[in-house]
């Protein structure tokens, strides 16, 4: 068993978990934050994307123990004081979600990506979305949302 102490959405937590526990399972099962999803077993789909120490990472690819001492933000921590994050806002305004299952991972990936590249070209957006699968939208409105969010965040 491993003791993992970490901050999630600004709140300090301490969990005792099996050594092999993945960060995504700690978040979902132990911290009971079910907005972060699991969509595959091979780090392809990106539904589990969160921010770890400010970086977008796939939480299915991190052991819970590796996150000891980390500062984690999940989708539940994106809206601040009742105000949506610009990426959240853009996703709903652009109809960039249908079933919504990939959406938390998309929003976390896109907000991380825009931090690194605030004014992406279309090709850079496609590349930035390579690690996130969506089955419903055909991505057209997701790309539109990324552009809208980038514009809103540059203001």
């Amino acid at each position: 068993m491993a003791k993992v102490e970490l901050k999630i959405n600004g709140k300090q937590h301490s969990f005792d978990v099996e050594d092999r526990t993945l960060l995504v399972n700690l978040i979902r099962d132990h911290a009971q934050l079910t907005g972060t999803h699991v969509g595959c077993d091979t780090s392809q789909c990106g539904a589990c994307t969160i921010h770890m120490n400010g970086m977008a990472v796939k939480s299915c690819t991190v052991l819970a123990g590796q996150a000891n001492g980390a500062d984690i933000t999940t989708i539940e921590g994106m809206a601040k004081d009742g105000k949506l994050h610009p990426v959240q806002q853009a996703f709903t305004e652009c109809h960039a979600l249908q079933c919504g299952f990939c959406t938390p991972g998309m929003i976390m990936a896109v907000s991380g990506f825009l931090k690194d590249n605030p004014k992406p070209t279309d090709d850079e957006i496609y590349h930035g979305l390579e690690g996130n699968l969506c089955r419903c939208t055909g991505y057209i409105n997701i790309v539109k949302a990324v552009k809208q969010a980038a514009k809103a965040m540059s203001k």
Binding site: T34, T36, V38, I75, E76, Q88, T92, E93, P104
Partner: peptide, 21 residues
């Protein structure tokens, strides 16, 4: 008024409830 889908708010904030939840 331009509105988003009513289901969107819970889905973009991590408050959806899918079967594994």
């Amino acid at each position: 008024a331009q509105v988003s889908r009513f289901e969107d708010m819970r889905l973009i904030t991590g408050n959806g409830k899918y079967s594994s939840d």
